[in-house]
Design a binder for these strands. Structure first.
Ligand code: MN
Ligand code: MN
Ligand code: ZN
Ligand code: ZN
Lengths: 149, 149
DNA sequence: TCTAAATTTATAATGAATATAATTTCGAAG
DNA sequence: CTTCGAAATTATATTCATTATAAATTTAGA
């Protein structure tokens, strides 16, 4: 995975403007968090992180802003866990794996996907969601299994 | 798509027994509905359909039973729409497309899927979820677009 | 048939997300 | 730089699918 440059607030400002989105401190910080952390956070996680540096932030703003970003199509919804909406500012085609042990959501590279029987359908969105264990958690689990053999 | 034989209640009875699931009228009818209708219904849709012939049925039973079927791994969760849990008794590997116009969920045949970078991961579940328009709704939409050219 | 355990029911509770209405902030015009 | 209407944000109430609880009923084996 290539190393990406962190986005400055100025980068975010320009990106939002290019997408006809009015600027506010909250929108800048929320998008900056999504694009630089890339952890697929929930609204609550974003709120808890950002309220430390912006105590005036309200949870409703985070929910509203994320919904607005979805409408503007600058973020995508990651729905790998029922009743847990996560958000991703990376729009390129990739899948997600949620580790059922540590809860983290990882990006998965898709080499190839071939579907059939889609004649007549119009496809607007594709989501590939996996559930399992990340390498760290899988290793721990294997060690535990050996211990109790 | 091949034509499948409808399952009788006796078929369902045997199938549940084989999976170490105690029999009850509700479990039989809920599983029969899933396996014969194959519409990927929500709990509410199942409840509304079945209460007509079984007025004593309660919504809690439908929710409990579906959760129990998930634990027993005889149904899978279809999560193509946020906050709308749908259930599928077909366990073979296939994807789903939700029509954003009529709301129906269609099975999609997956010819091929190749992922990379999964070294060290353990994958327990894979879900491919599409959103778009079914052929009927896409046709209507195209007609409307021509009308207003 | 009898009995303990499992299932089902009615009801209350939960919790993420949305709606509402008042307040604050943004940003373009002057 | 100031002004001012529109848009964004806030606190709060509300929604709604789902889960928890505890009592009643049903199941399945002895
Ligand atoms: Mn991602
Ligand atoms: Mn299906
Ligand atoms: Zn993990
Ligand atoms: Zn349709």
């Amino acid at each position: 995975m290539e190393k990406r440059k962190r986005w400055s607030l100025e980068d975010v400002h320009q990106y939002l403007s290019e997408h006809d989105i009015r600027i506010s401190l909250y929108r800048l910080k929320i998008f900056e968090y999504l694009i630089n952390e890339r952890t697929h956070p929930t609204a609550e996680e974003i709120y808890n992180k950002l309220k430390k540096e912006i105590p005036s932030l309200s949870p409703a703003t985070v929910y509203n802003t994320l919904r607005f970003f979805l409408e503007k199509k600058i973020v995508q919804l990651v729905n790998v866990e029922k009743n847990e909406a996560r958000y991703d500012a990376t729009l390129s085609w990739h899948g997600h794996l949620k580790c059922l042990s540590c809860g983290r959501v990882f990006d998965i590279h898709i080499e190839n996907l071939k579907l059939s029987g889609l004649e007549g359908f119009q496809v607007y969105e594709k989501h590939l969601d996996l559930r399992g264990l990340c390498p760290g958690c899988a290793k721990i689990k294997n060690i535990k299994e050996v211990e109790y053999d």
